[in-house]
């Protein structure tokens, strides 16, 4: 479904991604693991065209999307739950959700209302807060909103950048349950995480990034077993 072929990006003179290749098949949950500054977020930005790859290609459903503008890429069916949520704090919950559907140019209000209902079904807390300013909500609620907002564009591929960041363990479990549920409804998911254990527990496959290169790739089950890999690349204490 999504394929990165030897993608290279630079921030100024610094090479952030050193030719990474990865593939996500329809229906999968794939996780991209790595420590700080390993290039995880840059990979997301390269997929969305926020950072333009200098070399290599990104293809989505067989069509090359690298080089397209972010808006066009989003219209093809990819959406993002960004790192640190980045909901529109000065807009209401409802407005945030409507913004999520901005790329669906032809959608009628009835369709949008139905989709918002669907999101409220998934995240009942959001219904209670529909007219509240998003910036006044708790971190967990904002994470729910960021996910709801991303789903409003009816993506076929959902990118999630550090969904566990800053959340309590109970909320992390809840968020990952919902990620699985979204996946069961047919959305392909790429999760970028530092928290390898949680991400691998729901993913089908995983890639490990280090210093802008993919160093390991395997099934999630195998990666979960491979303590040495997690110790070496993810800085985890396996005890």
């Amino acid at each position: 479904m999504l394929k990165l072929d030897r993608v290279v990006t630079y921030y100024g003179p610094i090479m952030a991604l050193k030719g990474i290749s990865l593939e996500i098949n329809a229906g999968e949950i794939v996780c991209l693991l790595g420590g700080n500054a390993s290039g995880k977020s840059t990979t997301i930005k390269a997929i969305l065209g926020i950072v333009r790859p200098q070399e290599g290609a990104v293809t989505f459903e067989g069509q090359r999307i690298s080089g397209l503008g972010t808006g066009e890429i989003v219209r093809r069916g990819i959406s993002l739950v960004p790192e640190a949520r980045r909901i529109f704090g000065r807009m209401t919950v409802w407005e945030n959700l409507i913004m999520g559907a901005y790329s669906r140019d032809g959608a009628t209000q009835v369709e949008l209302d139905q989709d918002i209902e669907r999101i409220y079904g998934l995240f009942p807390r959001l219904r209670e807060r529909t007219t509240q300013y998003a910036g006044t909500m708790s971190g967990g609620e904002q994470q729910m909103l960021a996910m709801g907002r991303a789903l409003m564009s009816r993506p076929r591929l959902l990118l999630m950048d550090e969904p566990s960041m800053g959340l309590s363990p109970a909320l992390v479990d809840q968020v990952f349950d919902i990620i699985q549920e979204i996946n069961r409804h047919g959305t392909t998911i790429l999760v970028v995480e530092q928290n390898a254990a949680v991400a691998l527990s729901i993913a089908h496959r995983g890639y490990v990034l280090q210093n802008g290169s993919i160093v390991v790739q395997d099934s999630a089950a195998a990666l979960l077993q491979a303590d040495d890999i997690r110790r070496a690349y993810l800085g985890e204490d396996s005890s």
């Binding site: 969305l48 926020i50 503008g69 972010t70 808006g71 989003v74 219209r75 959406s79 993002l80 960004p82 980045r86 529109f88 704090g89 000065r90 807009m91 407005e95 409507i98 913004m99 999520g100 901005y102 790329s103 907002r149 564009s153």
Partner: peptide, 22 residues
């Protein structure tokens, strides 16, 4: 819709673009 797009760009330009706003 235009007004929401303007507010979105004012608040977080990159995220507005990710929503599909030109």
């Amino acid at each position: 819709r235009l007004g929401r797009a303007i507010r979105a760009v004012a608040e977080d330009r990159e995220m507005a673009a990710v929503m599909g706003v030109s």
